[in-house]
Design a protein around this nucleic acid. Structure first.
Lengths: 161, 161
DNA sequence: TGCAAAATCACCCGAAAGAATGACGACATC
DNA sequence: GATGTCGTCATTCTTTCGGGTGATTTTGCA
């Protein structure tokens, strides 16, 4: 992706330079500006379309890889596997590695269940502000900016069912 | 599709005409040709990329049914699950039963990945308001009041990976 | 070709969420 | 006793979400 932009920039620069150069070489016909504009426009439009197609292709590919990775992680986490009745054991190693406390994980699981901060506060008999604090710390440790993202990360890391 | 190309042509013509016109109006600074070239290049590159993305998106949408059919066939052949390489096939029955459209499900998956409405809007080249509308409808159909809840429900119903 | 469904966008408003701080007590550990 | 961690709570402020409503455009299908 970054490479594409780079290539794009380089090619663009070269193109413009070439146009500049050729202007002093070839016959300077009338309406040269608009001709050049058109030429540049067509070239870049084509290139842009190509780039667009390529980007989407890349994106699909990369997202597919991500899915595979996730699946692998899941496999590692549940090697013995008891799909139906397992109460789910959170990945303690990950938890400790990230410094996530038990309370934070507890709040996280409730967040993952779709509860609001207020509902969590009620359920745990604490104030909403406390829930927010725990959330903020957990999000920080997970590198998440939103609760949905935190849930996603938590599942990836095996912290949440 | 044909319309896109038409728009492209019209916009291109207008742009070049505008450039032509402005040249005789504004101060003709030195290196004006290369500046114009750069300007045109940037504009058309952007437009080209946008067009390319849009075209691919359309094509994805229209060809999605075909892809799904293939996936369904695969599911029938391997009903005992093949966890490693399946790209995940959303539960179409549930989706239809709830009246959730393809677009809504698409937004839902992005919500599940932890993206904000704005990020989703950027990624799908639509306005944030549109994303909100899709979200609201999807939440309504899922009986969810929050996005975390919607994600939870979506996973329960086999709509999301 | 015309119609119904989908998709798109806008605007408003209130509620929820999150960021940034600061603070305080309990508890363990050294 | 000093230190550190954890859980708790508050306040302020900004951003994001979600509900509600209406409108237009696009699309798919009959």
């Amino acid at each position: 992706m970054r490479r594409h932009v780079l290539i794009f920039g380089v090619v663009g620069g070269l193109l413009i330079a070439t146009l500049q150069y050729t202007e002093y070489r070839f016959v300077v016909i009338e309406h040269s500006v608009e001709l050049y504009s058109a030429l540049v426009a067509i070239l870049f439009a084509t290139f842009g379309i190509w780039l667009g197609l390529r980007i989407t292709r890349r994106r699909e590919t990369s997202s597919r890889e991500t899915i595979r990775e996730t699946v692998v992680v899941r496999e590692v986490l549940v090697p013995a596997e008891a799909p139906a009745l397992e109460p789910f054991a959170p990945n303690k190693a990950q938890q400790q590695a990230l410094g996530i406390t038990a309370r934070e994980l507890e709040i996280l699981t409730l967040v993952a269940r779709g509860l609001s901060n207020r509902e969590i506060a009620t359920q745990l008999f604490v104030s909403e502000n406390t829930v927010k604090t725990h959330c903020a710390r957990a999000f920080d440790k997970l590198g998440a900016a939103r609760r949905t993202q935190a849930v996603q990360r938590g599942k990836e890391l095996g912290l949440l069912p």
